[in-house]
């Protein structure tokens, strides 16, 4: 099964397109998403049939106390983890019905990730880290390198191109992670506590950078503990004990979409 490189349209194979696509205009639709963790004989329900819809170009912030299920939500709706119930449509494509190989390719072409712990590959240089998603998408090495360098320049790291992550500060590492998430020109960027390991000044820099990217039309789903970070979003949802307890459009105070399932 071949998934084409995106050109604005969601990717899907001819075989599965009809079965898996939804007619909605939303870039992300989560319906009744349920996730259970099992450890020994114990079961912990992390998501209780959660519903969520995100239109293209939205900057969505997800807040909630520790253990509320924020990261689980990100993992499940981005396709990093399997779900135990419900379905997730990304650009109309039911991602959990895809094989691991298809889902992996879909991630490579449609999504970018930013993690709290940066998660850069320590043995690659900054340039190599950033060009990885491009090479995955089949971009030629020379072009990938040029685009990686341009993206790094954009995040203010033109002077750190050949450094390895351990040689960079936390803020610089997170900017590399941002560059890596953006280099492949994804449709959605998932950011899990991107400022969690940074001091306030660095956190502000990163958030401003994300804000600029969002302004250019990028869909951004950001998990945070920090209300000041969340305040930059268009919309804020709050999760508690695996349930969506609040959904508000920032600036208007009005409820935005679907509530908890």
């Amino acid at each position: 099964m071949i998934l084409p490189i995106p050109d604005g349209a969601p990717a899907a194979s001819a075989d599965t397109e009809d079965d898996m696509k939804d007619g909605s205009d939303s870039i992300l639709v989560a319906e009744g998403v349920r996730k259970v963790y099992r450890s020994g004989g114990d079961e912990v329900v992390a998501l209780h049939g959660l519903d969520l819809t995100v239109p293209p170009g939205e900057f969505l912030a997800v807040m909630g106390p520790s253990g509320s299920g924020k990261t689980t939500l990100l993992n499940c709706v981005s396709g990093l983890d399997d779900i135990d119930g419900g379905r997730v449509l990304v650009d109309g494509l039911s991602i959990h019905e895809l094989s691991d190989k298809e889902r992996t390719r879909h991630r490579a072409q449609e999504m970018g990730f930013i993690f709290q712990a940066f998660n850069l590959i320590p043995v690659f240089t900054t340039t190599e880290n950033v060009e990885l998603p491009l090479l995955l998408a089949g971009v030629h090495e020379r072009e990938a390198r040029a685009r990686a360098r341009a993206t790094l320049a954009r995040v203010g790291l033109a002077h750190r191109l050949e450094r390895r992550p351990p040689e960079l500060s936390g803020g610089e590492q997170q900017r590399v992670a941002v560059a890596r998430a953006l280099a492949g020109r994804p449709r959605i960027v998932w950011a899990d506590e991107p400022t969690g390991n940074l001091d306030s000044e660095m956190a502000q820099n990163v958030i401003e950078l994300l804000g600029e990217l969002h302004a250019e039309g990028l869909t951004l789903i950001l998990i945070t503990h920090d209300p000041t970070v969340a305040a930059h979003a268009d919309r804020l949802i709050t999760i508690r004990d695996g349930r969506l307890v609040a959904d508000e459009r920032l600036g208007t105070g009005a409820p935005a979409a679907v509530g908890a399932g």
Binding site: L80, R105, M111, F115, N119
Partner: peptide, 14 residues
């Protein structure tokens, strides 16, 4: 383990 997880998240085929 963690870098491998990251690479898989980025879209590296298994």
């Amino acid at each position: 383990r963690r870098p491998i997880g990251t690479l898989r998240a980025l879209g590296f085929p298994s």
